[in-house]
Design a protein around this nucleic acid. Structure first.
Lengths: 196, 196
DNA sequence: ACTAATTAAACTATATTAGTCGAAAGATGG
DNA sequence: CCATCTTTCGACTAATATAGTTTAATTAGT
């Protein structure tokens, strides 16, 4: 990695720490710079604005989530397990990695344009992931579906819809059982039944 | 509890939430008021300044700590257990209750006068507690000591000295064993030895 | 209905902070 | 060792946010 990229990544890490702790509004550019042991104007050398720094952090975190999703899916045997683990990891990671989650929860952030943009980006990646899964299942004749695009979108929409209620009153046991039941409900309507 | 006191306590609770989360500097009077579902100027009706609100919170928390110390000590059998539990609870509570701990840790707060004042108040309460304990032990001929005041002050000084190093690299196991060993070291120099 | 306690809206003076600019300090390469 | 390009930083400004004030309205007690 070249010098420039290294410093930039360093700044992103510093920014991440502060953003996760204090949220967007309460984080100052000076704090981020200090955390990275740089002057404030150095920060502006790498990023045009506070929002751009935040966007970089969110993108970085989205990347991490995607990585973890990939390994979770790759390490699962059956397609249903893949789907189940995908959902479980997705929620766990969104919860853990503070910023994406914060961005979703805090109302005052939600109406900021760049948050929406970052979210859209992540959603697209996710959607492709889901489509690939569904397609795989279709090829293997495990899923009895035609319009993959529509189903993928519906699926993602459902995920996003449960996201908030589940995250708001979070109790790990309740949380996991509910997600599992969601997967069951969703997939047993899709599965090819051999008994008909 | 009269109305005025009730509202005041409510404001203190709201302030506590915000202060614990964001620290003194990053907390705004507006946020506190909003959290208590009041207007900002209502807050100023009950408190003269932001610092006064903070002071009220710190005093409230100090009160809670003292309560817990009392029950911990009362529920201990031997005097050594009383002392040991006193120390363990003290550290646990200072850690848990965010504000007192924050006030100690954050350097930028440390040089504020009112923090020092709050700390002095708490320290006095604590010192009396320790003196009572020592006195008790002396009456019961368990402690072989004369100048209770000096010993109490020395003891408290030691506690405050270990406070920071212990809290900074906090690992619960290490933490507790170290504190226990501290008590042992301290008390086995004080105990009346029967073997001499 | 009167009085005192409480709340809230609108305002101000001050302090913070995002963002700029130009100069200085390092690196790179001939 | 010079010339050029990259990176850092201190000092500055303009915009914004916030502590605290004032005044008027609302509520509760008698």
């Amino acid at each position: 990695m070249e010098k420039h990229e290294k410093v930039r990544q360093n700044l992103i890490n510093a920014a991440r720490k502060i953003f996760v702790r204090f949220g967007f509004e309460k984080t100052t550019m000076n704090e981020i710079a200090l955390e990275a042991r740089k002057g404030k104007s150095s920060l502006y050398y790498y990023f045009a604005s506070k929002e751009e720094v935040f966007q970089a952090v969110v993108e970085y975190e989205a990347g991490i989530i995607v990585e973890k999703l990939k390994t979770a899916v790759n390490n699962s045997e059956t397609l249903i397990d893949k789907a189940r683990n995908f959902i479980l990891v997705r929620f766990a990671e969104i919860q853990k990695l503070g910023n994406l989650y914060n961005a979703l929860r805090d109302d005052f952030l939600n109406h900021l344009e760049f948050i929406k943009k970052a979210r859209v980006q992540y959603d697209m990646m996710e959607l492709n992931f889901i489509k690939a899964l569904l397609n795989d299942g279709k090829q293997q004749r495990i899923f009895d579906i035609n319009d993959i695009d529509t189903i993928a979108e519906t699926f993602q929409m459902t995920l996003k819809a449960v996201e908030l209620p589940l995250l708001i009153d979070y109790e790990s046991e309740v949380f996991e059982t509910r997600l599992n039941s969601l997967v069951d409900i969703f997939f047993y309507g899709i599965l090819t039944r051999n008994d008909e």
